[in-house]
């Protein structure tokens, strides 16, 4: 198991550095309104990590090792979760830094955690898909998702900067509304982690069926 962590770890940790640069730039630009858009890049980042890790994976080798399907699922989900924890620290810190003194702290914290929770489930769903139909069949979906997410987020950012209203007024209206209470964050995270754990079980069963 330790060997699997060592082998696949870079795929989940290295992109965090890349994301850190984006977050630092957002903080540097005091991008309080841009922050939700930056957070929207997170699903693309974790999808790229899953794709990078699985591209170099040898399913036949894994099946030769004395590991149960559940253990393989646990190690892969553990890796993705490790990466996601680093992202959580990053986007939460970024949300705090960009929102300090602006009155948008709670909104941005909730936004960060909502995106993070959805992204965690997305990572689990990718594994369910990969082990259900095979990596090579999922590749087009992985690439399309990354491309659409990055392109859409970049376009939204460009539009926000060009109009200097940080995207449409309606969006600003939402942001000006009273923020949801912060207690929603631990609830959201707990639900996401429980759902992620359930997805791990589904993924392990998909592996056991061995549909490759």
């Amino acid at each position: 198991m330790r060997a699997l962590y060592k082998h696949h770890g870079p795929a989940f940790v290295a992109p965090v550095v890349n994301f850190l640069l984006i977050c630092m730039r957002t903080i540097d630009n005091r991008g309080v309104f841009l922050f939700p858009l930056v957070a929207l890049l997170l699903p693309a980042w974790i999808t790229a990590s899953v794709a990078w890790s699985e591209k170099g994976e040898s399913e036949a080798l894994l099946r030769s090792l004395p590991l149960t399907d559940r253990e393989v699922a646990r190690s892969k989900f553990g890796l993705a979760l490790t990466g996601m924890i680093l992202y959580w620290l990053l986007i939460t810190a970024t949300a705090v830094f960009v929102s300090l003194g602006t009155g948008h702290l709670a909104a941005n914290i909730i936004c960060a955690n909502a995106v993070w929770s959805a992204t965690l489930l997305l990572a689990g769903l990718w594994y369910v898909g990969i082990w259900s139909v095979g990596f090579h069949r999922i590749v087009p979906a992985l690439i399309a998702f990354i491309a659409v997410d990055v392109a859409a987020t970049t376009a939204l950012m460009a539009a926000a900067k060009a109009t200097r209203v940080y995207y449409v007024a309606a969006f600003s209206e939402v942001w000006r509304a009273p923020a949801p209470a912060l207690w929603a964050v631990p609830v959201m995270l707990t639900v996401a982690l429980l759902a992620y754990r359930a997805l791990m079980g589904v993924a392990a069963r998909a592996r056991a069926k061995g549909v490759y």
């Binding site: 082998h7 170099g56 040898s58 399913e59 036949a60 080798l61 099946r63 030769s64 090792l65 004395p66 590991l67 149960t68 399907d69 253990e71």
Partner: peptide
């Protein structure tokens, strides 16, 4: 006994599937 059997059984594919790099 999946784990036990995977330890006792070695499969050598036509093209052994180790990480190429």
């Amino acid at each position: 006994s999946e784990r036990e059997l995977r330890r006792r059984v070695t499969f050598v594919a036509e093209e052994p599937p180790f990480y190429p790099d």
